[in-house]
Design a protein around this nucleic acid. Structure first.
Length: 570
RNA sequence: UACCCGGUGGUGUAAUCGGUAACACAGGAGGUUUUGGUCCUCCUAUUCCAGGUUCGAGUCCUGGCCGGGUAGCCA
């Protein structure tokens, strides 16, 4: 047991703290975390890493992780988000058991403890307006001033607070404040508001309340009620920790430990709910689940797997410094997962017609293809071959550069699982556009091997024209052209106008007519694809999740770069 | 010119509480290959600065510099 622990690889600072607490018996050997979203928007990949952190820590230490909705602001929250959040967490593969909680379920308890705070002389009702409170608070460099209502008697405070609850006052007329220190260098400690009046129905408690507790008060109390041991949150709450501790200490309640860590940023995207919301409102994307969005719903629709997102979360780790993780790492995790599992199929994105001139007009053959070379247990399937085929436009060049290993006049290539073919003729229209390519095949090479042992440099994917099913295919690129859109004056100016390319009528092998939602495919040599929910009985729609690594494309890019450099010198 | 927190390859994280700066991704070179995929081999590249303590500092101390957070009746 002890050895096993030593053998484990290095731990992040949070797990180190937990280890220490376990050693000292701080929480009696318990580990209990929580994921506390506010149901006011969709979860994104940043939340995903937080979810993975909290649930994984609980799993590793044999502890528990709660799902708790931090719903103390009725103007922003709704049931729709509660549902979406649950779906996302579950999809990621985590289980909160019977421990789904709502801060709103604690309202009565919270109210009673607020009364207790008043009784202990640690809270008071203040009549200052929002504007006045702001003025009294002071600034970053100057201390604040005490409210004229700060020294009301306990009895008066009790009566006033009860009246607030009873609805005797209008919004903003009064608040309940903690009585701490108006001169504290930490502005959060300058008598923060803990209850405000809002005559607004709550999506769960309805009209029952017209006063609502603030985050700082609610969060530490909720953690305490639930017996949380380690309350993980992001860096911007670091300055709030003294307040978190203050409430619990003053009320002499069970005291969890708040630990702050840095949220993860991803290159070529934005991560704030607000900015994501703008993209949706302005119809720059089709919705919160647009496959270009970094939301969990978007990534799911795009074709990312829960496993790949969990792997990503683990690989990026956790620390306290600001960061921007390269999008390439997320793609790497996706490919690593899907390379092992995705079923291989053939489809052509931009078709070029090939006619095999020495193949009989009415003949067809069904050739055996391997479903996944990485997983022998996935078996084989049959694909049809005939005289007329489609290949990828980019797999043919009339005048190819040196390292082009694909089809060109006079060249022989292999059609994957098919035959060797040799290009004999290029047919063009009057405008000079290539209409079709005419080839001959070698009947001896059925399946893709030559009995005489001769080699070909290239293997092409293809689809029999007569048997093809046609689908719409959506190709995605980064939503932004800048690595960090946040640092632009206006982040919308960095939106990538080519982030979505829609291809109509792409010929695919016939087995894809039975493609199912939620299944992962690799279109050989092209990338990973999934069926989009927009698909209907008479129209398949596929999303490209990610391309395969493409060293040929890289080479071309390099060559292009060299050429422009050369020409710019001239 | 307040308080809090950070600064390790291009990126994200490590470094057994002072002992050879490592892992992954990205990038580069090669090999294998019926996917220019996968896989394999190799390479490039790192401690913000200045002092101090020490046999020895990424780690400890002091002082700078740079970056982030904080003045909601948002969370």
């Amino acid at each position: 047991m002890e050895k096993k622990r030593e053998a484990q690889k290095s731990k992040d600072f949070i797990r180190q703290i937990i280890d220490r607490d376990l050693d000292t018996g701080k929480y009696g050997g318990r580990v209990h975390t929580r994921f506390p979203p506010e149901p006011n928007g969709y979860l994104h990949i940043g939340h995903a890493t937080t979810i993975c952190l909290n649930f994984s820590i609980a799993q590793e230490y044999g502890g528990l992780c709660n799902l708790r909705f931090d719903d103390t602001n009725p103007t922003k929250e709704s049931e729709e988000y509660v549902r979406a959040i649950q779906e996302d967490v579950r999809w990621l593969g985590f289980d909160w058991g019977d421990r789904m909680y709502f801060a709103s379920d604690y309202f009565e308890k919270l109210y009673e403890y607020a009364m207790e705070l008043i009784k202990r002389g640690k809270a008071y009702v203040c009549d200052l307006s929002a504007e006045e409170i702001r003025q009294y608070r002071g600034t970053l460099t100057e201390p604040g001033r005490e409210s004229p209502y700060r020294n009301r008697s306990v009895e008066e405070n009790l009566r006033l607070f009860q009246e607030m609850r009873q609805g005797k006052y209008r919004d903003g007329e009064k608040v309940l404040r903690a009585k701490i220190d108006m001169a504290s260098p930490n502005l959060n400690m300058r008598d923060p508001v803990i209850y405000r009046i809002m005559h607004v129905p709550h999506y769960r408690t309805g009209e029952k309340w017209c006063i609502y507790p603030m985050y700082d008060y609610t969060h530490c109390m909720s953690d305490s009620f639930e017996g949380i041991t380690h309350s993980l949150c992001t860096l911007e709450f670091e300055n709030h920790r003294p307040l978190y501790d203050w409430f619990l200490d003053e009320l002499e309640l069970y005291h969890p430990q708040q630990i702050e860590f840095a949220r993860k940023n991803l290159s070529y995207t934005v991560m704030s709910k607000r900015k994501l919301g703008i993209l949706v409102e302005k119809k720059i994307v089709r919705g919160w689940d647009d496959p270009r969005m970094p939301t969990i719903a978007g990534l799911r629709r795009r074709g990312y797997t829960p496993e790949s997102i969990r792997m990503f979360s683990e690989k990026v780790g956790v620390s306290k410094r600001e960061n921007t993780v390269e999008y390439a790492l997320l793609e790497h995790c996706l490919r690593e997962d899907l390379n092992k599992r995705a079923k291989r199929v053939m489809g052509v994105l931009r078709p070029l017609r090939v006619v095999i001139t020495n193949y009989p007009e009415d003949k067809e053959e069904w050739l055996e293809a391997i479903n996944n070379p990485e997983d022998p247990s996935s078996g084989v399937r049959e694909i049809p071959f005939s005289r007329e085929l489609y290949i990828e436009q980019s797999d043919f060049m009339e005048d190819p550069p040196k390292k082009f290993f694909r089809l060109a006049p006079g060249r022989e290539v292999r059609l994957r699982y098919g035959y060797y073919i040799t290009c004999q003729e290029v047919v063009k229209d009057e405008a000079g556009n290539i209409q079709e390519v005419r080839c001959t095949y070698d009947p001896q090479t059925r399946g893709g091997d030559s009995p005489d042992g001769r080699k070909v440099k290239g293997t092409l994917h293809w689809v029999s024209a007569r048997h093809a099913v046609f689908a719409e295919v959506r190709l995605y690129e980064h939503l932004f052209i800048k690595e960090n859109p946040e640092e632009e004056e206006d982040f919308l100016s960095a939106v990538n106008p080519d982030s979505l390319v829609v291809l109509k009528s792409c010929p695919l092998e016939p087995s894809l007519s039975e493609a199912k939602l939620g299944e992962y495919y690799q279109f050989e040599r092209l990338g990973y694809f999934v069926l989009d929910p927009d698909s209907t009985e008479n129209g398949l729609v596929f999303n490209r999740t990610a391309t395969l690594r493409d060293t040929w494309a890289k080479l071309q890019k390099q060559a292009k770069g060299r050429n422009t450099k050369k020409s710019s010198k001239l």
